[in-house]
Simulated assay, not measured.
Amino acid sequence: MKKICVFTGAATGNNPIYRDVATETGRMLASRGLGLVYGGGKMGLMGAVADGTIAGNGHVTGIIPHFLNDIEVGHPDVKDLHLVDSMHERKAMMYDISSAFVILPGGLGTLDETMEVITWRQLKQHSKPIIILNQNGYWDHLLALFQSVIDNDFMHNDHIDHFEVAQNLEELGNHLDKFA
């Protein structure tokens, strides 16, 4: 089974559409026979994407550091939940077992994971697909920042090809169909 790593927030944000998008992303993975790999928590959008996958009878692999298990609280319905010692171990395991990455709305943790996986692709450490879901323009400023980095000659224009952008769930579904 191919596993798709989803980076997203442990909070729900202030727009209810993001929770719906996370839940539907999980259902989409399950309906295509794709497993979910995620941060292991039951809170926020992370919990919603896991709930959606579980509701669709999909496979979920959660990876959460011991110290975060008390804050984000490991998802009790995730049968394949791994407790690890550090954030570095969490990210390494997520990257190793995933076939592709999907970025949903989130905060600093989501940005950290996103930048690292894009940087690793730029450095040819992997060639796995990366899809940024820009629902409601959530990532517009990040995408503009990437363009500014290119415009100021700190990144080559062809590096923008290291990830794809889906503007809505339908486009995300089209990308996921390539992996199913």
Rank of each mutant, 00 (worst) to 15 (best):
I4Q: 05
I4K: 11
I4C: 13
F7Q: 03
T8W: 01
T12L: 14
G13A: 01
N14P: 05
P16S: 14
I17K: 13
Y18K: 09
Y18Q: 07
R19G: 06
R19K: 15
V21S: 07
A22S: 09
T23L: 14
T23Q: 08
E24G: 04
T25Y: 09
G26F: 11
R27M: 13
L29F: 11
A30I: 12
S31Q: 13
S31M: 09
R32E: 04
V37G: 11
G41I: 10
K42N: 02
K42G: 00
G44K: 01
G44L: 03
G47C: 12
A48M: 06
V49T: 11
G52R: 01
T53M: 12
T53H: 04
T53A: 15
A55N: 12
G56S: 08
N57F: 06
N57P: 02
G58N: 06
G58Q: 05
H59C: 11
V60N: 10
T61K: 03
I63S: 01
I64N: 07
P65G: 01
D70F: 14
I71Y: 11
G74Y: 07
H75A: 04
P76C: 09
P76E: 11
P76H: 08
D77F: 09
D77G: 10
K79G: 03
K79R: 14
H82E: 01
L83H: 12
V84L: 03
S86C: 10
S86K: 04
E89I: 09
R90N: 08
A92S: 14
M93N: 02
M94C: 07
Y95R: 09
D96Y: 10
I97Q: 15
I97S: 12
I103E: 07
I103R: 07
P105A: 14
P105C: 02
P105M: 05
G107N: 02
L108W: 13
I118R: 11
T119C: 14
R121P: 01
K124Y: 06
Q125N: 08
Q125I: 08
H126N: 14
S127H: 13
K128P: 00
I130Q: 05
I130S: 02
I131A: 01
I131W: 01
I131R: 02
L133T: 08
N134P: 07
Q135P: 00
G137V: 07
W139A: 12
W139P: 10
D140A: 14
H141Q: 12
H141L: 09
L142E: 00
L143E: 04
A144C: 03
A144L: 11
Q147G: 05
I150N: 10
I150G: 11
N152D: 04
D153P: 00
F154K: 08
M155N: 10
N157P: 00
H159S: 12
H162Y: 14
H162N: 15
H162L: 07
F163A: 06
F163G: 08
F163P: 08
V165M: 05
V165G: 12
V165W: 10
Q167T: 15
Q167G: 13
L169G: 11
L169S: 08
E171R: 12
E171K: 15
G173A: 09
G173P: 03
L176D: 10
D177G: 05
D177W: 05
K178N: 06
K178G: 03
F179E: 09
